[in-house]
Design a protein around this nucleic acid. Structure first.
Length: 919
DNA sequence: CGGACGACTTGGTCAAAGATCT
DNA sequence: AGATCTTTGACCAAGTCGTCCG
């Protein structure tokens, strides 16, 4: 970001300076140490209740100290500025020697069950509140797989077919692993799946008998369930399946032993964590030592309390963190922010306003968890929004029944919107044309020459547009640059907002230009005219003391001005397509505000890790519930957990007909005995979800039951909707909702795969490991992309090149053998003589060519492999950046290899994470 | 308690920008 | 240097989920 660019308002001035300056890495020694110390202390104290000593913490510390010191001094970018070089890139921190400590020692938790009691009476198992760390129910089983990524759990699970019809294979990785197998690496952190499985299964049985506490029972249930889930291999057909382990394996005795401990008490949790810790360190090669310490520390922490307080401030509610020590934070920008935040916090207004209707604060005062009392900012200054330029008539006449037609500028504008879409496949959608014509007709007027779309020929306008595009393309670099600068100059003032004194980027300060609505899938409103938005449509939200943004269109004024500091939007207008909905102007993803909520999101997902066992046990138990709603909730939760399905809110008739978990129709899920479910439905954005999964038999039966007696188009879960589901989830864990499972599963999968699969080697190889993990997550989340139009052309070109190289290789070989005999090389295809090279040179060339061929083959495979998989979405929205950052630090991979500039800016909040961080 | 409302996150596409190849 | 391929970012649609209200 161009900080300098910003207009210099006085307000900005101070800040600007800072922004530009390189920041020091947060983890500067002192600060980081302090934090650590604090956190540890906290942890320790918290742990005490358990009776567990905080293990190794002492050992760890030294390590931390080192690492931190090593890091200190590095330059960090301000939040806004992407760092020229990321601190990560130079991992010297790694030298610290401390390697893995034997964290393994398990600590027993003394009082396991108390937590249970805490829980609400509600049937569901509630995990203890975060505040009561000891209580976590889930912890017992923890070491096992809960933490494991879905993929692991569902081995092979599923082969998905994307919309294109190609089938993807399930992951191959670890699902099959057996316990112990991976140990050498980081492995142990979480037990191998197999172990988990087994344990689960065994537990399940055992659990049944044990009555001691509900928790236990629940857990047992979960275990079973999980185990089964795991066991089931993917139904698939694909080779990948091979990985899945036979059920027999699952059962292996070893595992059972593992489990038991868990069952008994929360302690297990601790163990698990520790284990995790260990694993990490090992995983890497030498450099990673640093992480250990951190890890250890973390482990401890985590054990003691539910994520809430991790060692860093992560655990703390953001507000607290912020308050925490501005000093500690080395980054200049952050400091500023911090202070501001603090002030805002104190200031806090309650939400008294509520009652007032929209005029003032429409929103409720409620405080979102983790955020400061619902207040999002104290001062907010911005310049409003920028409008698209007015329409410039081109005067090109379209034809109607072969004759040129004169159109008014308004009519022509809409005709042009349609004309420029002539080469899209909306043209094959009757709904689109119908909606378009109906709206255009209103502008044409009843008696216009044009009476139907069939008689219209928009080609002249289309061609005009193509020519314009071409002209633009032909402009010289200078012209383009000038144009760009001109645009920047006009927009500059709108690009920034000052939030609590900190200059932040605004996300979408441009008002959407008029156009035809491009709904996805079979959207009933596609093709409708999205009318031009004017100032009178726009509501501005701004600080009370801030100057009102000047209305950029002379003679007009804003619809309304608000001063609502409980929301983050700067402006909104009603969506012209659906007037009941709004379009908001928010800050950019790189802003502190967004970063905070992003961090909270991941913290919540991490918290789920501590509860997941209990939750799985609970829903497994409810598969057999007599209460239909409970049973449906259980099965739905299972699907969301196992398949990362979206919640599935109800939709109106005037939206595309897509579904999520709660809105699955009978026809979307086909049970195939003995225990396979075939899913086929259109999800968000009308992206097809196709998957076959082996499920537990209780689930299979339940689905059959839910389907029985219903028509294909009826709801599978007729007693359920997302609010009921989420209400139930909230009883299991504070703040838990369906979407948290997606975040959790994505991030835990990444963390797990990275720790297991990262071996030594070059940076490039490690990057491949990362991409592989990223791809697995994308598959789990069903993030697809359409195959690019040029894909096949690109592939065949690659093939040609490979063939060409192979031919070249053959020639080289011939020349080599001739050269060895002292003969000159053969002539070229075109008859020209080649240079006479000595055998060594030829051999070198052959090796080079071979390498080139191999690389191209690899590229080709990757390309084919990823042609339908979109990696970006998960990286942006589901993968906790701290996992990536910590991994980069541990493995000396420059963060820039993984995150581009905007991602670096967006994840500025995660950059100073401890290298030992584990999700 | 259900639905409307409101705010915010997630998501795919496309064109521009950048990188690489020829 | 221009062509071609790849990456990035703008764009804006489409989800999720909390709250309010009747």
């Amino acid at each position: 970001m161009v900080v300098e660019a910003c207009s210099t308002h006085n307000l900005l001035d101070d800040m600007e300076d800072d922004d530009d300056q390189p920041l020091i890495f947060k983890r500067s020694s002192s600060a980081s140490k302090q934090n650590l110390a604090n956190s540890e202390t906290k942890k320790l104290s918290s742990q005490k209740p358990d009776g567990q000593p905080a293990r190794n913490s002492s050992d760890v510390r030294p390590v931390n100290g080192r690492s931190s010191s090593a890091q200190k001094g590095r330059i960090v970018h301000s939040t806004n500025l992407p760092p020229a070089k990321s601190p990560l890139s130079s991992p010297k921190a790694s030298n610290s020697s401390a390697r893995a400590l034997p964290i393994t020692s398990s600590r027993a938790n003394p009082k396991p069950s108390t937590s249970t009691s805490d829980k609400k009476s509600s049937s569901s198992v509630k995990p203890p509140k975060p505040s009561i760390p000891a209580a976590k129910p889930s912890s017992n089983f923890e070491d096992s797989d809960d933490d494991k990524p879905l993929s692991t759990r569902l081995p092979g699970g599923s082969s998905k077919v994307n919309a294109n019809g190609t089938s993807k294979e399930g992951d191959d990785f670890n699902s099959v692993q057996k316990p112990g197998v991976q140990e050498d690496e980081d492995s142990d952190d979480e037990k191998p799946l197999s172990s988990r499985f087994t344990s689960k299964s065994s537990l399940g049985e055992s659990t049944i008998k044990s009555n001691e506490s509900e928790d236990k029972k629940l857990l047992a249930g979960k275990l079973q369930q999980n185990g089964s889930a795991l066991r089931h291999g993917p139904v698939n057909k694909s080779s990948s399946l091979s990985n899945k382990r036979p059920q027999g394996e699952v059962k292996s005795s070893n595992e059972s032993s593992v489990k038991k401990p868990k069952l008994s008490s929360p302690t297990a949790v601790i163990i698990k964590k520790q284990a995790t810790v260990k694993a990490e360190p090992k995983a890497e090669e030498d450099d990673d030592q640093i992480p250990l310490a951190h890890r250890a520390k973390k482990t401890v922490t985590s054990v003691s309390k539910p994520k809430a307080e991790e060692d860093d401030d992560d655990t703390l509610p953001i507000s607290q963190r912020i308050k925490k020590s501005p000093t500690s934070v080395s980054k200049a920008p952050s400091v500023k922010k911090v202070s501001k935040v603090v002030s805002s916090l104190k200031k806090t207004n309650k939400k008294s306003k509520k009652v007032i209707k929209k005029s003032m604060y429409s929103k409720s005062s409620k405080v979102p968890p983790g955020s400061g009392e619902g207040q999002k900012w104290t001062t907010l200054v911005h310049n409003g929004v920028i409008f698209p330029p007015p329409y410039k008539p081109h005067g090109v006449k379209m034809l109607y029944k072969g004759q040129p037609v004169s159109l008014s500028p308004e009519q022509e504008e809409v005709a042009t919107m349609f004309a420029v879409m002539l080469d899209t496949d909306y043209m094959s959608k009757p709904q689109f044309k119908e909606n378009f014509f109906s709206d255009w007709k209103k502008i044409l007027g009843k008696n216009h020459t044009i009476q139907n779309l069939e008689g219209c020929d928009f080609a002249p306008i289309y061609e005009w547009h193509q020519r314009e595009k071409e002209k633009k393309k032909q402009m010289t670099t200078e012209e383009k640059k000038a144009l760009k600068e001109e645009k920047l100059k006009q927009e500059e003032k709108y690009m920034w907002a000052i939030v609590d004194g900190v200059k932040e980027k605004v996300g979408n300060f441009r008002v959407e230009p008029p156009g035809l609505f491009r709904g996805r899938g079979e959207h009933p409103k596609m093709g409708k005219l999205k009318k031009r938005i004017r100032p009178r449509d726009i509501t501005i939200n701004i600080g009370k003391d801030a100057p009102l943004p000047e209305c950029p269109i002379p003679g007009e004024r804003w619809k309304e001005i608000r001063h609502d500091n409980t929301v983050t939007w700067l402006a909104f207008w009603n969506d012209p397509i659906n007037p009941r909905e709004f379009k908001y102007v928010f800050l950019a993803a790189s802003s502190t505000l967004k970063g905070q909520s992003d961090k909270e999101k991941y913290e919540k997902a991490r918290l789920l890790k501590d509860y997941i066992h209990g939750i799985r046990a609970a829903y497994t138990k409810d598969f057999a519930s007599k209460d239909p709603m409970k049973k449906q909730v259980a099965v739905a939760t299972y699907l969301i957990d196992k398949l990362a399905l979206r919640a599935g809110n109800e939709k109106d008739d005037d939206e595309a007909d897509t579904v999520g978990c709660c809105t699955l129709k009978v026809e979307n899920v086909e049970p195939v005995p003995p225990n396979i479910l075939k899913f086929d439905f259109l999800g968000k954005d009308s992206i097809r979800y196709q998957n076959e999964v082996e499920v537990e038999s209780a689930v299979f039966k339940a689905i059959q039951q839910f389907r029985s007696g219903k028509d294909g188009s009826e709801d599978l879960f007729d007693k359920l909707d997302t609010s009921k589901l989420n209400a139930h989830l909230k009883e299991l864990m504070p703040g838990l909702t369906a979407k948290v499972f997606r975040t959790y599963n994505a991030s835990i999968t990444l963390d797990d795969m990275l720790s297991k699969e990262t071996k030594g080697g070059e940076v490039a190889e490690k990057v491949v490991v990362y991409q592989h993990a990223n791809k697995e997550v994308a598959i789990i989340c069903n993030h697809q992309r359409t195959v690019s139009k040029s894909h096949s052309a690109q592939m065949s070109r690659l093939n040609e090149k490979i063939e060409e190289l192979k031919g070249f290789l053959e020639d080289l070989k011939t020349d080599l053998s001739r050269a060895k005999k002292g003969k000159p090389p053969l002539k070229n295809a075109d008859g020209k003589p080649k240079r006479n090279l000595n055998p060594e040179a030829l051999e070198r060339k052959i090796a080079q060519t071979n390498a080139k061929i191999e690389k191209m083959e690899r590229d080709k495979e990757t390309k084919e492999d990823l042609k339908t998989v979109a990696l970006g979405t998960s990286k942006i929205n589901y993968l906790d950046p701290r996992i990536t950052v910590a991994w980069c630090k541990r493995h000396e991979v420059p963060i820039e290899k993984i995150f581009n500039k905007s991602l670096l800016a967006k994840f500025a909040w995660a950059m100073d994470v401890d290298p030992g961080f584990r999700f």
